[in-house]
C-alpha cells in the first residue's frame, strides 16, 4: 500500500503535468481537487483512464471519480480493492 501511494503521487505529477509539485509535497490525505492539489474535472477523466490502463479498473460513470479521487489514501484503497492487474 505504501509503495502504491508513492507510485500514485509520482504518476499524478507526471500525467497531469504538475510541474510545481514533488512527491514529498503531497500528503496521503491532502484533497486532490479544489483547494489541495487544485485538480479539476478534466484531471478526473485523466485519472479514470489511468485506473483502466494501469490497474485494469473500468469506471463508466465519471461522477464516481469524485469519491475515489478524494485523496491519495482513498485512491490507493480503491485500487487495492478493485485492481485486476
Amino acid at each position: 500500500m505504501e509503495n502504491l501511494k508513492q507510485e500514485l503521487k509520482a504518476k499524478i505529477i507526471e500525467n497531469l503535468n504538475l510541474e510545481d509539485f514533488k512527491v514529498e509535497d503531497i500528503e496521503d490525505n491532502d484533497p486532490l481537487f479544489g483547494d489541495g492539489l487544485g485538480l479539476d474535472s478534466i484531471d478526473a477523466l485523466e485519472l479514470i483512464v489511468m485506473l483502466d490502463k494501469d490497474y485494469g479498473i473500468k469506471i463508466s460513470d465519471p461522477k464516481k471519480g469524485k469519491e475515489i479521487f478524494e485523496s491519495i489514501q482513498t485512491m490507493a484503497q480503491f485500487i487495492m480493492d478493485n485492481k485486476t492487474k
Binding site: I42, E46, V49
Partner: peptide, 9 residues
C-alpha cells in the same frame, strides 16, 4: 484505446 482528454480538449 486508453486515450485521455487533455490533448483533445
Amino acid at each position: 484505446q486508453f486515450l485521455t482528454p487533455t490533448a483533445f480538449i
